[in-house]
């Protein structure tokens, strides 16, 4: 597959800073927009978000009236006894919101964080309106 041998470009290393909306954050820290992949399967929507430096317990996810909020908090770890000599990336929290068009079964949402990647499985709610099959005579 051509995609697998593709070389990761410098663009991918760039972090997009979150533009402050109406509501300011209480913590004055850099906030980045995580890169995401979102795909829809037969019975769930899966969100993958790159959040390097975020520990599994430092993720906050809320879903309120179809708005999905993803927050990842980073505890910066600086090597002790060293001083920064060259910097290409900055450290900060991650935040991103999505409006979901699909009905989601909130009770069964699953979130895991592994190797700095958040994986969110949003199961589609089973439709309450059932299709009624018409029996042939």
């Amino acid at each position: 597959m051509a995609e697998e041998t593709k070389e990761l470009q410098m663009e991918q290393a760039k972090k997009q800073e979150l533009l402050e909306g109406d509501a300011e954050r209480t913590r004055s820290r850099l906030v980045f927009v995580p890169r995401v992949d979102i795909y829809e399967g037969n019975d769930a929507i899966v969100v993958l978000a790159d959040m390097p430096g975020v520990a599994p317990e430092a993720v906050d996810i809320t879903l309120e009236s179809n708005v999905l909020n993803i927050n990842g908090y980073v505890t910066p770890q600086y090597p002790e006894g060293y001083s920064l000599a060259w910097a290409e990336y900055r450290i900060g929290d991650y935040q991103r919101s999505f409006t979901l068009s699909e009905e989601i079964d909130q009770e069964r949402i699953e979130a895991t964080v592994k190797d700095g990647v958040l994986r969110l499985v949003l199961p589609k709610a089973t439709p309450t309106t059932r299709k009624i099959a018409i029996k042939g005579a």
Binding site: A13, P52, Y82
Partner: peptide, 26 residues
């Protein structure tokens, strides 16, 4: 945004006994 030279981005920390390089590889 700091100057980037390639993927992945690297931060380099130094002292007289050596260096620590950190990179983000999610």
């Amino acid at each position: 945004a700091p100057a980037l030279r390639g993927y992945p981005a690297m931060n380099v920390w130094m002292n007289e006994n050596g260096a620590v390089v950190t990179t983000e590889l999610p």
